[in-house]
């Protein structure tokens, strides 16, 4: 099987794989993680301290997202977003949404559900006493959340959030169903073009493994450094 393994094919493909594919993958990962964290935090806040309506809506949203397969959501958004946009903007035709925008929106909305569960657990674990201490000093509920509770939650939960982001990094490869050129998509295109399936898929696996492994190690290292002294 490996007798005619062609390393040259990989080396020649490197600029395309990393310059196009990996840049796309990393951009999508980072933007999705940041967007997902922001939306997820808002969802967590809505569930914890929103009114009954808001918290029910947020809970429903989170549970819905967590029960659907990601590929389905990617497809669904890709085909529905132009029509939703048309309806929202009152246009006469479905709006044009690029593959990247559609994918980014999908990942933000999907990841937000997971990030919100992490943040919710964190907010609840920062003892109620901290909340009382903030309020007792005359801070408003919002200020207490912003200056006292959330900074602690982010630091405590950072390792879990980053681990979730590593999973997200792997999951972004699913955008290949939209024919987008992420890292795996790029490898796949070269593989098809040059007939180098073994080389390309082996190399792609190796790269994903290396990045995720190193990132996990880094998270573990970081864990002890960001921990709050108690």
């Amino acid at each position: 099987m490996f007798s005619n393994f062609d390393f040259q094919a990989i080396i020649q493909a490197l600029p395309y794989l990393f310059g196009q594919g990996m840049v796309f993958t990393l951009t999508l990962t980072v933007l999705s993680a940041l967007g997902g964290l922001m939306l997820g935090t808002l969802l967590a806040l809505a569930r914890i301290s929103g009114g009954r309506v808001l918290s029910t809506v947020a809970t429903g949203y989170v549970n819905l997202m967590r029960t659907l397969p990601l590929v389905l959501v990617i497809f669904w958004f890709y085909f529905m977003v132009p029509y939703i946009g048309q309806w929202l903007l009152q246009e006469s035709r479905p709006i044009k949404v690029g593959g990247f925008s559609s994918a980014l929106l999908t990942f933000i909305m999907f990841e937000a559900a997971y990030f919100s569960e992490i943040m919710r657990g964190g907010i609840q674990s920062v003892a109620r006493g901290q909340n009382a201490a903030g309020l007792a000093l005359g801070l408003t509920g919002g200020q207490t959340m912003r200056y006292i509770v959330l900074p602690q939650v982010l630091r405590t939960m950072l390792p879990v959030l980053l681990t979730q982001t590593i999973v997200l990094f792997q999951d972004t490869s699913l955008v290949y169903v939209l024919s987008l050129t992420d890292f795996l998509g790029a490898a796949s295109k070269i593989a098809q073009r040059d007939g180098r399936l073994v080389e390309m898929y082996c190399f792609a696996a190796l790269v994903y493994f290396a990045i995720c492994f190193l990132a996990s190690q880094a998270v573990r290292h970081l864990q002890s450094r960001v921990a709050i002294i108690r």
């Binding site: 003892a127 006493g129 901290q130 009382a132 201490a133 903030g134 309020l135 007792a136 000093l137 005359g138 801070l139 408003t140 006292i148 900074p151 602690q152 630091r155 709050i228 002294i229 108690r230």
Partner: peptide, 21 residues
């Protein structure tokens, strides 16, 4: 205005409740 009132009332808790971060 509760925040305004609480700002004038100092409170010390059993478990200190300093902000650890």
């Amino acid at each position: 205005n509760l925040p305004k009132l609480r700002a004038r009332v100092g409170m010390v808790f059993q478990h200190f409740e300093l902000f650890p971060h």
